[in-house]
């Protein structure tokens, strides 16, 4: 028997390791090396000193966020929006993937898949403009239709209550295609023998979906959700900023950490203060993912991320 030595392994798995290398390199360069920059959050940044030479100022940079009186509100908003996005988006994506898998011929599937994927490539700036043209009070399509039907126009942009729904909807619409493709790939890789066996046992299509497809999707679902949970305290800045902009009236319902910090610091450009907010988000995200992963481990050891 061949002995497991480091060099043997290196040789045996060289193709796999090579394939892994770009991703590892990417994370080292763009995630691990920059991590040293975390010190900025504790410094009074000046250009002459740069990242490491500037003077320390303790926790001063964190004051702005926690003394604003909005810290709790925006943190809560961020988490709630992300939870809603994760639940709604994943549910819809799984649903769409199963539908696509079960229904239709090759062409139908390909065309539908592309159509679902399209919104993913539209930038948030454009989505924001489309939304404004659909929803605005004076000339928006939605209100034009309502008026045409003899109903009263609704002032969407001045009513915070509508926005959680609109944002969840837009996020689902935009992310649908991407997630669907991922789940579709997972479904396609399920062993077809299981379906054949189920069919022989007389299972109908719904039973097949419930007993074969969905249980086989669990690992994928758990991994995707776990990965998403790590970012639960990061608001999708592009989305919130382009949909809401500087409309203060909607902030109570739509402000997330990222937009709040951007707005507060865009004029003062204080790198230390914005870094402090980023550190806050990262620490929360880290705590969340550790907790969730721990919970998953407790429930089923094999399905945890680590």
């Amino acid at each position: 028997m061949k002995r497991h030595t480091f060099w043997n392994d290196l040789r045996n798995y060289r193709v796999l390791l090579l394939m892994l290398a770009p991703a590892v390199l990417f994370y080292i360069l763009f995630a691990y090396v920059p991590m040293a920059g975390i010190v900025i959050a504790f410094k009074r940044y000046d250009y002459a000193g740069g990242i490491f030479g500037s003077a320390w100022n303790g926790l001063d940079n964190f004051r702005f966020f926690f003394e604003s009186g909005d810290a709790w509100r925006v943190t809560r908003n961020t988490a709630l929006y992300n939870i809603a996005f994760i639940v709604v988006n994943n549910a819809l994506q799984i649903f769409a993937a199963i539908m696509l898998f079960e229904v239709g011929g090759k062409w139908f599937r390909k065309i539908t898949q592309s159509a679902l994927f399209l919104p993913y490539f539209i930038s948030w700036v454009v989505v924001g403009a489309i939304a404004y043209n659909l929803l605005n009070y004076d000339i928006g399509t939605v209100n034009a239709v309502l008026r045409g039907l003899g109903l009263e126009a609704i002032d969407i942009y001045n009513t915070p209550a509508y926005w959680p729904y609109i944002l969840v909807l837009v996020s689902a619409w935009k992310g649908l295609g991407y997630g669907t493709v991922m789940y579709l790939a997972a479904i396609t890789s399920i062993d077809t023998e299981m379906y054949e066996a189920a069919e022989i046992d007389g299972a109908n299509i719904f039973q097949r979906i419930r007993k074969v497809t969905i249980p086989n999707l669990y690992p994928t679902i758990i991994i995707l959700v776990l990965l998403a949970v790590g970012n639960i305290f990061r608001g999708d800045f592009g989305m919130f900023y382009n949909m809401i902009g500087n409309n203060g009236l909607l902030f109570s319902a739509t402000d997330v950490i990222d937009t709040f910090v951007f707005r507060s610091l865009i004029t003062s450009n204080d790198i230390g203060m914005s870094a402090a907010a980023g550190v806050f988000q990262s620490v929360l995200g880290f705590a969340t993912i550790m907790t969730v992963n721990y919970a998953v481990r407790k429930y089923d050891k094999d399905r945890a991320l680590f």
Partner: peptide
């Protein structure tokens, strides 16, 4: 600086809607 960041935010959130008459 801390106070200026927060005051600016309040102006955007409370003063601007007030001035444009949507409150």
């Amino acid at each position: 600086k801390t106070e200026i960041a927060n005051v600016g935010n309040v102006m955007l959130r409370y003063a601007i809607p007030l001035e444009y008459g949507v409150i």
